[in-house]
Each structure stands twice: as structure tokens, then as C-alpha cells.
Design a protein around this nucleic acid. Structure first.
Lengths: 222, 222
DNA sequence: ACTATAACTTTGATTAGTCAAAATATTTTA
DNA sequence: TAAAATATTTTGACTAATCAAAGTTATAGT
């Protein structure tokens, strides 16, 4: 059985792999996201390889084995289901749930996780709009693009907010710029670095390109 | 900050202290309930004393300091609130919740615990009928007695089931012999070692003295 | 192509928690 | 009360996870 330290290493390696579409994650990055010294990450890489969780390529980086990927996917599932529970059921704030789920994900059993999934109505996306892997470890990969990549008149659905900055999240919530919401791009001025959205109730929101890059969306067929 | 091992030691010491109304718990018993060798318990006792959680009396036993008792009470609160959640909200079986709560109690934050308490409607008793300590660490001590101590014609309310035997718990549930239920003792035959209860709907249950000792109840004024 | 810098690995040490087995103390029993 | 049984402590060893600091290798810049 994996310790929670092992679970954390594997999950973070998976997240980087998915986010940056790379096959090997360099040790420096592993050390940074886990908040340990590089030496610690290296020695951990060796034991993770010894136990068959990852492949370690000295001076290059690490990649997950099938076994490691499976466990990491399961951790991601736990994490995102817990985040959903914390927001939907207990009403915690968006900005707090990550740290909370980080702890709980190691303690919750497969059985309780199942009950929770059922209780929540088997959600497919977490409050950030990230897909929740299925029990089998399959993750729905959507080809969402930053808002700044869409053209004028496009109809879109917000998928996720990349930035974790508190102020921006607060603004996003106030303007309903949250996962699931639908908008039409009614203005786009490349030279003025500005995008204007309108939702179905006629409310308008203005974003600079810098912010628009932090908001991922999908084209939406009405 | 206390590790979860420390939390476990303190909680178990508290539970024994409460259940057996003793002031010092011998090391052998500590080792047994925690599933470690006696030597481990002894060396742990020393570090717990070093960090101010307990007082260690060599060859006699350990007792909690004020600081240790406070933390242990908090663990008990976590444990019992979680058990309540697992039964009431997720519908887990009585017999499974102890082990589950045992893991989760170390991972849940004070904040989430508060939200959970609120969500559950601030329950005062867990599914076993044991009192849930308040946030300040106060525990409601009821003077419940084993069923076998009551006389004929007494009206009682079940408080808790001491035994954790699966078969007995199953029987208890089937016959509604669970915390909160009310019964009248309609027969007691000391020589035949038997007690007969009747609930408000006229259903009768027969218990031998051995079993009646496992069921704690309170006198009930109608 | 050298050198300076950045990235990575090694080495040696530390802490928490554990066990097995030997040593010691206490309690029970004959 | 002396021997046997039981309870507790000590000792020595081990694993997981970590850090600091020294050593090594790769990368980039002139």
C-alpha cells in the first residue's frame, strides 16, 4: 500500500503530465510543486521506481508506469470529488477547498468515495470545471481554449478558470464567469486588448486579454 | 502540531479513562488497543511526555495532561461527528463506520468539521448513542445503566450498545434495540436469567442477562 | 571553446515510529 | 516466601521521509 507521500508525488506528476502534455517531468519541477528540496525529490524518485510506480531517467526526469498512472488517476478522482462535496454540500469557499481536499483525499476509503459520488449525483466536473476521472481512471479530455482565442460572435461555455488568484476568483464569481455559464462574445478589439461578453440575461462583462487567457471555454452549440 | 499517531494514542487513552473511570492507564492496555508491541508503547509514552501531552509513571501507566485531554476530546468529537455523517448522510452501515472515521478524523480541518456539524444539525449523540463532545471539549456524561440493572415495569430509553460484535449489532438493529428507542420492561426473571421488553407498538424482545449487560439505558419519564 | 550558471545527484545526518528479543520488576500462586 | 507467571522497560536495528551542503553534469552566453 502506498503512503500518502507516495500518493502526492504520483498525483503531482500526473497533473504536470496532463497540463503540459509532456512525457517526462524534470526533478526540479517535482521538487518545486511538492515543496521539498531537489535532493529529496531525487531520492524519492529512486524509491518510487524501486516500487514500480514510475520510471526514473537520471538527469532527465520521471514518468508514470501503468500502475503509477492508475493510482494517480484515482487520487485525482478523490481530490475532485471531495472538492465538489466541499462546495456543493458544505458550502465552503472556492478558494479554500483545494487545501482541504489535499488532506482528505488520502484518508477516504474507496467505499465512502463511492457513496459520496452517488450522494453528489455522479458529477462529471468539479467546481473549477476540471473533469473528474471515472472509477476506471478515464478522464474526459475536452479541447477547451482560452477565451482570448475565440472570435467575435462565438457562443461559448466556460470550462475552467486557470488562475488561482483570490481577487480574480472573486471577480469571476461576481460576474458569473464560472464553469458552466454560457456567453456570447459580442466584441473583440485586438488593438485595444479587450473582449466583451454577454450572457443570456443580457449582462455584459469586459475583460482584458491578460485575464481572458486565464479563462478556458468551449464552443457551444445552441 | 500533533501527528496522527499522537492523536491516536491520546484518543485511546482518553476513551479508556472515560470508560473505566481510571486516572492512569497501564502501558500494556495502551499497547493492546493501539495494536503495537509493549516496547513501542513505552517509548511512545516517553515522547508524549516530552511534548507535554501526558504524564508517564514508569511501571504504572499514563494519564493525560490538560493539553493532552483537550486534544483527545477534540479527536473524539471529530470521530463521533464523522460517524454520524457516514450513517446519516451517506447511509453506511453501523458496523463499518468506526474504521472509516478512524482515518478521516485526522484529515478533517476544524473549519470543515464546523460546516459538517452545522450540516448535520449539531447532533449531540452519535449513531452508537455516545455523546459528542462540544467544541470546547465538554462531554455530556449520562448516568446510563445496563438494562439488567433495571426493575420490572421500568420505562427506559436505550442509550448505547457497548458490544461491537457484528452478530449482536445485527440482532439489535432488527429488534429496534438501538439508541433513542423507548421500551418498557414487562418481565424480569432473575432465576431464568431473562428480561422481556415491549416497545410502544407492542413488539416484544427477549434478552438473556449476558446480552442485557451490553445494552445501556436511561430511565425515561413519560 | 571556455566559463559561468543552473539543474541535478550524492552524502551524511536527523526524526518519527516501529519490532524483536533480552533484561528487569511486579504480582500471583503454591 | 520462593518460584513461576505476567507486565514493563531497555537495547539495538530498521524504514520512510526529510534537509543541508558538497559534488557533478549539462546548458547558455560570450
Amino acid at each position: 500500500m502506498a503512503t500518502s507521500t507516495v500518493e502526492n508525488y504520483l498525483k503531482e506528476i500526473l497533473v504536470i503530465t496532463l497540463e503540459e502534455s509532456v512525457s517526462k517531468v524534470p526533478m526540479g519541477q517535482v521538487a518545486r510543486v511538492l515543496g521539498v528540496t531537489p535532493g529529496t525529490a531525487t531520492s524519492m524518485a529512486k524509491s518510487l521506481e524501486r516500487d514500480g510506480w514510475i520510471k526514473y531517467f537520471p538527469r532527465v526526469g520521471v514518468s508514470l508506469t501503468r500502475k503509477g498512472r492508475k493510482l494517480a488517476m484515482n487520487m485525482l478522482r478523490r481530490h475532485r470529488l471531495l472538492e465538489t462535496f466541499l462546495v456543493e454540500t458544505l458550502g465552503l469557499d472556492w478558494s479554500e477547498i483545494h487545501a482541504e481536499a489535499e488532506e482528505l483525499e488520502h484518508a477516504i476509503s474507496e467505499k465512502v468515495l463511492e457513496k459520496l459520488d452517488e450522494f453528489l449525483g455522479r458529477p462529471r466536473f468539479d467546481p473549477h470545471g476540471d473533469p473528474i476521472p471515472s472509477k476506471g481512471g478515464v478522464i474526459q479530455q475536452l479541447s477547451s481554449k482560452p477565451l482570448s482565442d475565440f472570435e467575435k460572435d462565438a457562443e461559448i461555455r466556460i470550462e475552467s478558470i486557470i488562475d488561482q488568484d483570490k481577487e480574480f476568483l472573486k471577480f469571476a464569481r461576481k460576474t458569473k464567469l464560472v464553469p458552466g455559464q454560457r456567453f456570447k462574445i459580442i466584441g473583440k478589439e485586438d488593438c485595444a486588448d479587450s473582449i466583451t461578453l454577454k450572457n443570456s440575461r443580457g449582462k455584459e462583462v469586459n475583460l482584458g486579454f491578460r485575464s481572458a487567457e486565464k479563462v478556458l471555454a468551449l464552443p457551444f452549440e445552441s
